[in-house]
Amino acid sequence: MAKTIKRDNRGIAVAAIIVACWFGLLVYLLRIPVDFASPLPYLFLLLQTHLYTGLFITAHDAMHGVAAPGRPKLNRLIGTVTAFLFAYNWYPRLLPKHHQHHRHVATEEDPDYHHGSFFPWYYSFLKNYITWWQIVLMAITYNVLQLFFPLENVVMFWMVPAILATFQLFYFGTYLPHRGEHTPENKHKSGTQAKNHLWAFVSCYFFGYHYEHHDKPYLPWWQLYKAKS
């Protein structure tokens, strides 16, 4: 008999909050005058970067079926929308790659893994996930947005945060936990951050607790801290 997955609306609410905050802040930031001498625009840039990262983390939760547990169609819709909002990523393309990462972590069959130093690994990571049609859609969006909003706003609050979020996801969610050699006892071939829930959230929505994620992939990001001993 198939196991019944209990429905839980909390993940739906969390996803909705992230999307609403990302969209609402973006609309606001595209319209405000930018004073480069003030620290405020740079703080807004970092906040929007964090929300961009939240979009992908939400799509990632959907890949594990925990964005909307027990509702596969809604779960897939949440994953598709949040991945698409993050630089036009295509959820059906990301889904098999991510599960391949979990099955073959830190091996030649792992699409996220690269045996090398930081920048070659980062390049490999981008090349593996960014497609030409994404670049075309981003270029079209950029040119459309600058027709309606100041160029510096478009660059600072739409373009730059997307790039920084990609770096954030790679550095804290791939490079740090999977670099170097892991002992045979480390069955997930993954490292983990020291226990600090505030920093773990700020750095990458608790995904610095990466061994814990591989060990309990059924936990959504907002419950992952509970697995940290």
Rank of each mutant, 00 (worst) to 15 (best):
L147T: 15
N186D: 09
H188C: 01
Y175T: 08
E181K: 13
Y91H: 13
Y129V: 13
T174L: 02
Y129H: 15
R76V: 12
F119K: 02
K189A: 08
Y123W: 14
E109P: 03
H102I: 02
H104S: 10
Y129T: 13
A106E: 13
V81W: 03
V154D: 01
V144D: 07
P72C: 03
I140L: 12
F118R: 11
F125Q: 03
S124R: 12
R179W: 05
V144E: 03
V154K: 04
H114M: 03
H178D: 00
D112N: 09
W158M: 05
H114G: 05
F125P: 01
F118W: 11
H182A: 00
F167L: 13
E181Q: 14
F170H: 02
Y122L: 15
H182R: 04
R103S: 11
L74W: 00
E109C: 10
Y171M: 07
H98Q: 11
I78M: 08
H188Q: 08
G79M: 00
Y88K: 07
P184C: 06
T80E: 00
L77E: 04
D112T: 04
N153V: 09
R71S: 02
F149P: 03
T107D: 00
G173S: 01
V105L: 06
N89I: 12
T166W: 10
H99L: 14
G116S: 05
F170I: 06
Q134A: 11
T166R: 07
Y175V: 03
H101P: 03
H102D: 00
H99T: 04
F125S: 09
H188I: 10
Q100Y: 02
E152T: 14
F172C: 07
N75L: 00
Y91L: 05
W121R: 02
F148W: 15
R76Q: 14
T183I: 02
T183L: 13
L94D: 11
G116Y: 01
P111Y: 11
I78Q: 04
A162F: 02
F84D: 09
Q146R: 15
T107F: 01
V154G: 09
L95F: 13
L169T: 12
L74A: 08
W158T: 04
I130Y: 08
V105E: 10
F167H: 14
A68C: 06
N153C: 06
